[in-house]
Simulated scan of single mutants.
Amino acid sequence: MCPPAWSSDEEAAEWLYRQAPFGLLVHDTADDPVFVYANRTAQQRFEYTWQEFIALPSRLSAAPHDQPGRDSFIASVAANGYASGYRGLRRTRTGGRFWIEDVTMWNVTDADGVHHGQAAVFHSWSDA
């Protein structure tokens, strides 16, 4: 699905948050990174509200025994700027488990090259 043409940045941001058919997440650069953005698709899939999501350390999106694969993917992104093709097991707020698939993650930097975190988009998911 191609996104529609937008007449403004605000319109594009609104579509990305409310209507995008993929999940989009961003975490910050804290020692224990916390999510700073989750679009509605991600919120629904993970079963968190906006307020719950933006207070959640990103490591808690995966169960402890699923951390090694997540950590390896994040380290690859940190070293190379981005990575794609990832599939990982995640958990919902209520304890359900699901696969995020076709994931691409990249480092988020500003125009001056300052690193602000990492963003990930997942285009599909399935129940575990």
Rank of each mutant, 00 (worst) to 15 (best):
A30L: 12
A120V: 01
R90M: 06
D112F: 05
F98V: 02
S8L: 01
T29K: 15
A20H: 13
I54M: 00
F53A: 15
W15K: 02
R97M: 10
G69C: 15
F73E: 09
T41A: 13
D110Y: 05
S124I: 02
H115P: 04
R40E: 14
T92I: 07
W125A: 13
S8C: 00
Y48Q: 05
S7R: 13
A30R: 14
A5W: 04
W99N: 10
M1P: 07
R40C: 04
D102N: 14
D9E: 11
P57N: 08
A111D: 14
R70K: 14
L24K: 08
D127K: 05
D112S: 15
D32N: 15
I100R: 03
G69F: 08
P33T: 06
Y37G: 12
F53C: 13
A63Q: 12
D66N: 13
L16C: 10
E52D: 07
R18M: 04
G81C: 11
L24D: 04
T29P: 10
D32V: 15
S126A: 08
P57G: 15
L60Q: 14
F73Q: 09
G113C: 03
A78Y: 09
S124F: 00
H116F: 09
Q118R: 05
S61N: 10
G23I: 04
A38H: 00
E10K: 12
T92H: 04
V108H: 02
Y37R: 05
T49N: 02
S124D: 15
T49E: 02
F122M: 07
H27G: 04
R90T: 08
G85H: 08
R70W: 15
D66E: 14
F22H: 13
R87S: 13
V103G: 03
F98E: 13
T29N: 15
Q43Y: 00
C2N: 09
D66L: 11
Q44F: 03
P4Q: 01
D110G: 09
N80T: 10
D9G: 10
T29S: 12
R93L: 03
N107C: 11
E47C: 02
A13M: 12
S124R: 12
R87E: 15
A12I: 07
S72H: 12
P64E: 13
P33M: 07
M1F: 05
